[in-house]
């Protein structure tokens, strides 16, 4: 069946599906009217129980830490899968990929922005459990800094500063650190991923016990994963540049 007939066939089905979904969605309580018991409890007690002021981050790294462990390992597996798929079929690296000449203005401006981006990423991670932010968001910002490295310098600078072996190890160790902490707590006789470190005083960086540690482990893993994904796709992109064969 070609695409055109399929699209036409889908129209009545899509309409029926939309009606079906709307019938179900209409059963939800009115927009903005009620809040469930789970949310009410955590909104009221999370800061008191864990001395962190960003409640979603406390849920991500403490109340539902197992979810985050799963999400982080999905991230890890996806990046491994992408690397596996793209690396296995790429021709040998022997020909040195050349670069587009970037204009001087772009080079200077972006090279100024790189330290700012890295700082922003680290700030987003570190203050993740006090103000909006966290390991996930900050990790992607740090990953973006590696991309800007390519925009400013060139592919060779990017490759020099992000050796795949090291980034692989950083990502694996970030994920292993997260689970390792959980296992250590388990070995110490508590529940897996329980928050047993001193909670510190609310509103300061030294608060939240294991939330801060898991936050940084996630930040490391997500930034390494993002750098790896950009690196793999950059290698694909560089293949297309003219003169990729000769230097």
């Amino acid at each position: 069946m070609n695409t055109r007939t399929r699209a036409l066939l889908f129209l009545p089905l899509g309409a029926a599906l939309a009606a079906f979904l709307l019938w179900g969605l209409a059963g939800l309580p009115d927009f903005g009217s009620t809040q469930g018991p789970y949310a009410r409890y955590l909104a009221r007690h999370a800061t008191a129980q864990r001395h962190v002021t960003n409640v979603p981050t406390s849920i991500v790294f403490d109340y539902r830490a197992l979810d985050t462990l799963g999400e982080e390992l999905i991230l890890f597996t996806c990046v491994m899968g992408t690397a596996l798929l793209l690396r296995s079929s790429r021709e040998a690296e022997e020909q040195r990929p050349s670069d587009r000449p970037t204009s001087a203005a772009q080079r200077h401006l972006v090279s100024l922005l790189i330290p700012v981006t890295v700082l922003l990423g680290l700030w987003t991670i570190s203050y993740g459990y006090l103000t909006p932010g966290g390991g996930f968001q900050g990790g992607v910002v740090c990953g973006a800094a590696a991309l800007m490295l390519w925009a400013a310098g060139g592919y060779r600078d990017h490759r020099a500063l992000t050796p795949t072996g090291l980034v692989d190890a950083a990502e694996g160790l970030g994920a292993a650190a997260y689970i390792g902490l959980g296992l250590a707590v388990l070995a110490a006789g508590h529940a897996f991923l329980a928050n047993v470190l001193p909670l510190g005083s609310t509103g300061t960086l030294a608060s939240g016990g294991t939330i801060a540690v898991l936050n940084w482990a996630t930040g490391l893993e997500v930034s390494a994963a993002t750098v790896l994904v950009f690196h793999e796709f950059l290698k694909e992109y560089v293949q297309t540049l003219p003169g990729a064969a000769e230097d």
Partner: peptide, 16 residues
Amino acid sequence: DVAISMAVVSTVAYPA
């Protein structure tokens, strides 16, 4: 939190 997450993702990661 979600707005920062979406902002970072949809301006940097998806387009790249």
